[in-house]
């Protein structure tokens, strides 16, 4: 059975989540509507599969993996499938409804542990890979910093943090005005991803080696930060 637990010190739902994202994450109807690969793929303009592949490429069998926040679609089941028999996956999410949903989706698996916890305080364990998939753009800037620092802090020597998120698209990008409108209407903290690099959210960027790849005309970024071995 999956281990589902409330992390020590886990607090109530953060204000920004209830205020701006209740419709996306906190209602049973949200799960019914959004938790389908096709829906997520549509939201990401058909790039979901490719972005998942990029994220999963950083995960090696037999390693310890931490996923910060649940993700709609099939990313986590695919991640679990890559663990191998000795790998271990921990997922933290601040919303119990999301943890319950993921538990139902994954079924019984002793390699997986699910925690109700804030991504900025994911515990004290060290991991070979920390995955942060389309979480940062939903967080207020201060919270972005705390989550990036937490992700980097949880890396074991030689470990890698993989951030997949929105980025500033090229000037001619046909979806640039569309996404600007979407952010203005629905995602008040996402515009910061167009103004700042993910690296700039780290308090100690110099301690890590950074690699960045932009896709789909720059609308998405895959950033890998590696802790030296």
């Amino acid at each position: 059975m999956n281990l589902i637990a409330q992390a020590p010190g886990a607090s109530a739902l953060p204000d920004y989540l209830e205020r701006y994202y209740w419709w996306a994450y906190l209602r049973p109807a949200s799960l019914r509507v959004f938790d389908h690969p096709a829906v997520v793929s549509a939201i990401l303009w058909g790039q979901y599969r490719g972005l998942c592949d990029a994220a999963l490429g950083a995960v090696q069998p037999g390693k310890r993996v931490l996923q910060l926040a649940c993700v709609y679609g099939d990313l986590t089941p695919r991640l679990r499938d890559r663990l191998g028999p000795k790998g271990r996956l921990e997922v933290v999410d601040v919303a119990p409804i999301q943890i319950d949903n993921l538990a139902a989706k994954l079924g019984h698996d002793p390699r997986v542990a699910l925690w109700v916890a804030d991504a900025a305080a994911p515990g004290t364990s060290r991991f070979d890979t920390v995955l942060c998939f389309f979480l940062l753009h939903e967080l207020p800037d201060g919270h972005k910093r705390r989550v990036v620092d937490a992700a980097l802090d949880r890396l074991a020597p030689g470990g890698r943090a993989v951030f997949v998120d929105y980025a500033r698209p090229m000037r001619w990008h046909p979806l640039r005005p569309v996404m600007r409108a979407v952010f203005a209407l629905l995602e008040p903290f996402a515009a910061a991803m167009w103004r700042r690099d993910i690296r700039s959210f780290s308090s100690t960027p110099e301690r890590f080696s950074w690699r960045e790849k932009r896709t789909f005309g720059g609308l998405y970024q895959i950033v890998v930060a590696e802790r030296p071995g």
Binding site: A42, W45, P174, L175, V178, F216, G217
Partner: peptide, 15 residues
Amino acid sequence: IVALGISVNLLMRRK
């Protein structure tokens, strides 16, 4: 929206 998405995907792939 679907047509726009398809068009943009094809455009990006070509680029």
